[in-house]
């Protein structure tokens, strides 16, 4: 029975380490955001205060709410369109006669691994050329293209599991492919669409380098870039404000992750290792 005991002890210690390792930085962020001054560890002097939240939410020149709104709009639209486009493509790949399906999937997988820096310089000139710099469009279009490979892989793996008898019957009854996709595939593969949307949203929300280069002001700048470039009114690093902004931004993400963890995990594993 000693092996059983060792096993339990190992699992217990491991789990404690795992939870501590993953959560400590968040706890630190959370506590600092409520502290009057961010040097409370060295001064041993913690005073609870909501000032950081007050200034982040009310001082207009910090543009925190602008960045947050931009991020939500850009990520929401990108994720939605991405699911739509990937849904159509996944239908063609799993259901229609098409030569070179394997090549398309290969190609898309390779594309998803291109380094972003090898696109961003050209995209900057391209967007400046058509006058799109610092608009939502300049982010939404590249984001869709950049997240499509992952979305396609997720949806193809879900669609492939749906038996074909259903749509064959519908075809005989005279339904078009678009109708089959909407009326038969969509309801059955709804969890797949949900995983796909969530992952696409998270990827767009977290994207950094495109947003850094293609936006210049609070009109389109997203929250990761906003927080990375966050400066105090007097040039110092306003840690308290940054941590309050980080907390407001991450809490919704954390809640979403906790609620939808099953969907996110399924999407990730299907997108990355499906054989």
């Amino acid at each position: 029975m000693t092996e059983r005991k060792t096993r339990i002890v190992l699992i217990l210690l491991g789990s404690i380490f795992m939870a501590t390792f993953c959560l400590t930085p968040f706890a630190y962020m959370f506590i600092t955001s409520f502290s009057e001054s961010s040097d409370f560890l060295s001064s041993q002097d913690f005073h609870f205060s909501l000032d950081n939240y007050r200034s982040v939410l009310t001082v207009r020149s910090l543009h925190f709410l602008d960045y947050l709104r931009n991020s939500l709009i850009v990520s929401g639209i990108s994720a939605f369109l991405c699911v739509l486009i990937a849904g159509l493509a996944a239908y063609a790949i799993t259901r229609l006669a098409l030569p070179g399906k394997v090549f398309i999937m290969f190609f898309v997988l390779a594309v998803s691994m291109f380094p972003q820096v090898s696109m961003v310089g050209y995209l900057f000139k391209f967007m400046a050329g058509i006058g799109w710099t610092d608009t939502y469009r300049s982010l939404i279009f590249p984001y869709i293209a950049w997240i499509l490979p992952l979305s396609l892989w997720i949806l193809v793996s879900y669609f492939a599991q749906i038996p074909r008898d259903l749509d064959k019957a519908a075809l005989i009854d005279g339904a078009t492919h678009l109708q089959i996709l909407r009326k038969i595939i969509l309801p059955i593969a709804l969890p797949g669409f949900l995983s796909c949307f969530l992952l696409a949203f998270i990827f767009a929300f977290n994207e950094f380098i495109f947003a850094l280069v293609l936006t210049t002001t609070h009109h389109a700048r997203t929250i990761p870039v906003g927080i990375a470039l966050f400066q105090g009114l007097h040039g110092e690093t306003p840690w308290g404000n940054i941590m309050a902004a980080a907390t407001i931004t991450t809490i919704p993400v954390v809640i979403l992750t906790v609620i939808f963890q099953r969907h996110i995990i399924q999407g990730l594993t299907r997108g990355a290792v499906k054989s």
Binding site: P25, F26, Y28, M29, I202, F205, N206, F208, I223, P224, V225, I227, A228, F230, I242, M243, A246, T249, T250, V253, V254, L256, T257, I264
Partner: peptide
């Protein structure tokens, strides 16, 4: 799940 830029600032 959270942006690398934000975790970068925490670190």
């Amino acid at each position: 799940a959270i942006p690398a830029a934000i975790s970068g600032r925490i670190w």
